[in-house]
Structures are given as C-alpha cells and as structure tokens.
Write a protein that binds this DNA or RNA. Sequence first.
DNA 1: CCAATATTCACCCATAAGGTTGAATATTGG
DNA 2: CCAATATTCAACCTTATGGGTGAATATTGG
Lengths: 114, 114
Amino acid sequence: MQAARLDDTMLALADPTRRAIIARLEAGEARVTDLAAPFAMSLNSVSKHIKLLERADLVRRRKVGREHFLSFNPAPLDAAARWIEEKRAFWSSRLDALEQALLEDDAKQKRKRK
Amino acid sequence: MQAARLDDTMLALADPTRRAIIARLEAGEARVTDLAAPFAMSLNSVSKHIKLLERADLVRRRKVGREHFLSFNPAPLDAAARWIEEKRAFWSSRLDALEQALLEDDAKQKRKRK
DNA sequence: CCAATATTCACCCATAAGGTTGAATATTGG
DNA sequence: CCAATATTCAACCTTATGGGTGAATATTGG
C-alpha cells in the first residue's frame, strides 16, 4: 500500500500490452506465462511490462514456489480518475456557462425584437 | 477532431510538466512563452511538451501573427476516463461481491450457532 | 527597412521504453 | 539426483523522452 505517483500510473496505462494484461487479470490471478501466452512477444518482454505495472502498484505479485501469481490492484486508478475528472468537470462546467451565456443572449435578442 | 489514441492521451498525462500546462490552460488561452514562464526549463523544452500534447489532441493551436495561442481540448479525456472507470467499476463490484459473500457466511454462522 | 519578439527547426546528449536472445536461478516431479 | 518448468538477470539493439544550445523563420513596431 505505497505511494505510486500519478506519473507511473499514467505511464503504465499508456501501453496497449499493459492495458491488455490488466484486462486479462479481471478473470483472476494469472502466472507470468499465462499472461504472456496471448502475445506475439517473448516472455521476457511481458515480464518487463509486468515490472512496470508493479512499479505503478497496479499489479501485485504472490510467489508460490516457482510460480508467480499476479493480481490487479485498482487502488492507483483512484488518483488518476480523480485528476481526469477534475479537468472534465471544470471544462464541462465551462461549456455549460458558455451555453448559458448563449441562451441569455438569445433571450435578450428576443426581448429586443419584442 | 481526429482520433488520438488512448496511448497518446495517457502518455501525455504521464508527465508533471504537461499536467501543469493543462492546469494552466484552465485560466484560458496562453502563448508558448506564457506557458514556459513558470518552469525552470528552456522555452524549447516546453515547446516539445506542447507538441506531445497536440499529438494527443489535448491542446489546440491558434496562430495569430507570430503568436501561437494554445487552448485545452478535454475531448480525449473521455476515452481515458471511460477506460479507467470500467476497470474501477468491475473491481468495486467484485469487492462488493466479496463483502456480500462474507456477510452471508457470517449469517450462516449465526444460524448454525442458533 | 530594421531591430526586437515569438516560435520552431536542427542538432546534441543522457536515460528510459520496448523488444530480442542467452544464461542464471529456483523449484518441482519422478 | 536430474530433467523439466517458471522466472528473472544481463547484455544488446532501436527508438522515444526529456533536456540543452544555436540558428532559422515569421511577424511586428517604429
């Protein structure tokens, strides 16, 4: 349960392979080999992607003997979602204000014409 | 109004300088020079960050003579927010289910004891 | 026309990402 | 013990980031 900066979270999500890995983990824990299987890519490359996901704390590792079981940890998504929603909220309210202004102008025009 | 893949959007958001630039644009349009001012960094570096933001279609450029006015375009955030919320929804419902199962177990235990 | 202003372009540099292959390590099954 | 399995480690390559500098370009104000 550590920090994991927004930088790492966003960067981790910026790659389709890593997003696919996360999607795959919705079906439950998986080993490195399982995760690598669908990709036309060496096991090692997938292992590196997993490391990046771990750095972002989006993936947790549970070692049982020689097998490493990976699971998804959604916690870091909160901060990312919060940042994005803040911007979206600000700009949707700004658009609302613009719309409002246009409506008022319209009303003013109507009054004038009347 | 072009595509701008999730990759570019996420990558653009993965850097604190670029997030600060976006935050600054909430105050309205700004020139490259204005955006660069707060940073202990060359104008050129900021110009590059802006280019990355443009690639992600998060920033739009309006040229007036020698001045380039930049503005924020929130549209690409929709897809990013959607992806994140999908994962969050899935996992929060999964946690809910777990909680539910625990509660049911608890109830079962009570019944037994009774 | 000319100097100042606003930006980009063209390089240069260091580091990281994303991929490869081959060897090392750890653990299991027989 | 030994072979097979599951992973990582260590190099290496290519390309992209993130930063810098200096020159080129475009436009404006006198």
